[in-house]
Simulated scan of single mutants.
Amino acid sequence: MKKNLDLIKTLQQNYRTFSKGQKIIAEYIMENYDKAAFMTASKLGKSVNVSESTVVRFANTLGYEGYRDLQKELQDLIKNKLTTVQRISLNDDFSDRQNSLKKILKKDIESINKIIDEIDYDAFEKAADEIRKARIVYVLGLRSSSFLAEYLGFYLNFIIDNVKVVNLGPNDIFEQLMKVTDKDLVIVISYPRYSKRTLEALRYVKERNCDIISITDSLISPAAQISDITLAARNSMVSFVDSLVAPMSLINALIIATGFENEKDIIRKFGDLEDIWNKYNIYDKNNPNH
């Protein structure tokens, strides 16, 4: 069976070929896929009164190397559909307050480690090079991604001259992007639940032959399908919060990589800024770390 097929359709099409225990698992997943996506093999087995090994063998029957791969496929299918209320009710792993801190931090560490293991370094270097060469760099991120977009735009402004952060301000995002040309670059930050407005904007700039770099959760995300370069950093689903620690780390690395070629110019700019900060008492001079 092909893993790339819609999992629910795969279960429906092959239901008659399953053993009695596998049919029970398949029925539960089809009817409660939003809950099954966050269950361990042991917990899923207990819910349907079969053994953990039966659940693991079922995943193998579907063509997965293990249950964790099946679980990930389920999560990928639903993570863009889950409401905030559903996330709260499903993530009982974090109900234990004493251990929740460690669990949350470990999830973020795992997400950053995935970047280290899976990042396409050639694409990363090409992205930094495209940022340096672009006439104007537009940074687009809406809703929760807007914080990352503002952060990226803030620091890129110290490195290159023409950076514009596109946001939901007085002007519609299409008005802010109306002067985009094939000499410009759009950096989009897009995470589930994917903003429909963001994807519409990407299609608009693509029609104008503008190159697009996407920072998103996966190479198969909607934004990645429209982009020329994709940098993937997974977000962690932590109850009602989408943890964006991993993409923030990737953005930090991208900012630094972009600035490598312009070190002398950056030193000059920050020297000028230090003069301005001192002149107008921007920072507390009584603080030795200012």
Rank of each mutant, 00 (worst) to 15 (best):
L90E: 06
K114V: 00
I187T: 07
S100C: 04
E65H: 00
Y155S: 02
L82G: 02
I159P: 05
D92Q: 09
I115D: 03
K133D: 00
Q98A: 11
T181Q: 04
G141R: 09
K81R: 14
V186M: 11
S145E: 13
L185A: 05
G169N: 05
I119P: 08
E118S: 14
D172S: 15
Y138Q: 03
V137M: 10
A127S: 15
Y138E: 04
D184T: 06
I189D: 04
F154P: 00
V55H: 04
E65I: 13
S95L: 14
Y121F: 10
Y121R: 03
L70W: 12
K106E: 11
Y155Q: 09
V55L: 07
D92L: 05
L105F: 09
E150C: 05
K106S: 12
V137C: 13
S145I: 06
I187N: 05
D108W: 11
D129L: 13
T84Q: 11
D92R: 02
D76T: 01
K183E: 03
L177K: 01
A134N: 07
I187M: 06
T61K: 01
R97V: 13
V166G: 04
L90K: 02
F94T: 07
K126H: 01
V137E: 00
Y64M: 12
L90W: 05
Q98P: 00
A128V: 10
Q86E: 15
R135A: 03
F147W: 11
V188K: 02
N157C: 06
R87A: 09
K79S: 04
Q75Y: 15
V166I: 15
L70E: 15
V186E: 08
V166M: 04
Q98S: 10
D93R: 13
Q86D: 13
A128Y: 13
S95G: 11
M178T: 14
N113P: 03
I131E: 00
Q86K: 06
L105Y: 07
Q176N: 04
N91Q: 10
D120S: 08
Y138C: 05
L82P: 05
Q176D: 07
G141N: 09
Q75S: 02
D117W: 02
A59V: 11
L168N: 12
D184V: 02
L156Y: 12
L77F: 08
F124I: 07
A149Y: 04
Y155L: 09
A134Y: 07
L185K: 14
I104F: 08
D172H: 15
V165D: 03
N157F: 05
S144C: 03
P170Y: 09
S100T: 08
D122S: 12
I78Q: 07
K79L: 11
K79P: 00
N91C: 11
F158D: 10
E73D: 12
V166Q: 02
I136V: 14
F124L: 12
I115P: 10
N162F: 13
S89L: 09
L148R: 08
D117E: 15
N171Q: 11
E130L: 15
Q71K: 07
F158K: 06
D129S: 13
